[in-house]
Amino acid sequence: MAADDPPSPGSGPGAGGNGFPRDRIEIRLPSRADFLGAVRTVVRGLLEECLPVRITEEEIHGIQMALQEACINAVRHAHRNDPSVPVVVGITARPDLLVLEIEDRGPGIPDREHQPPDPDPDNPREGGYGLFIMRETMDEVRSERRGDRHVLVLVKRLVPRGPEGGAGAPPGSGT
């Protein structure tokens, strides 16, 4: 694995002695759009409270937006709002890297949607902003098949806080 590759769950430097990753959280939630705010809050909490990183409010908000778009895609399009089908959100959090893995049981993103057109202010679209937002706010967006599951992988490279303890702009409140 290259140094910049995101870690895979249960292996690599993030794995603890018993194989359980020491830098990963998994949230398994029903396919309910009204639960997604809680998942966004967990990611904000990790970034603000648990990781020694320099990060601005704008970056945190961008990560939350990307997560929202990936999750709402799983809930609405992959699972058609069926709460009995779980969405699994994996969050691997390191001082240099945040990896969000959103797993659903759908067919994945159609090829034609992988490169969404840029928004056109002269002819604004009512939809199609989700993948665009993910690509604009994250460093990497990948769609993978893992067995019968589809996983959208979102990667954000972070800047570790130096020994002086300085941080980016103070994060504000939000969801």
Partner: peptide, 10 residues
């Protein structure tokens, strides 16, 4: 409005 996503924009 505390948060808006692509559906809100739409």
């Amino acid at each position: 409005v505390k948060f808006i996503d692509s559906f809100g924009l739409g």
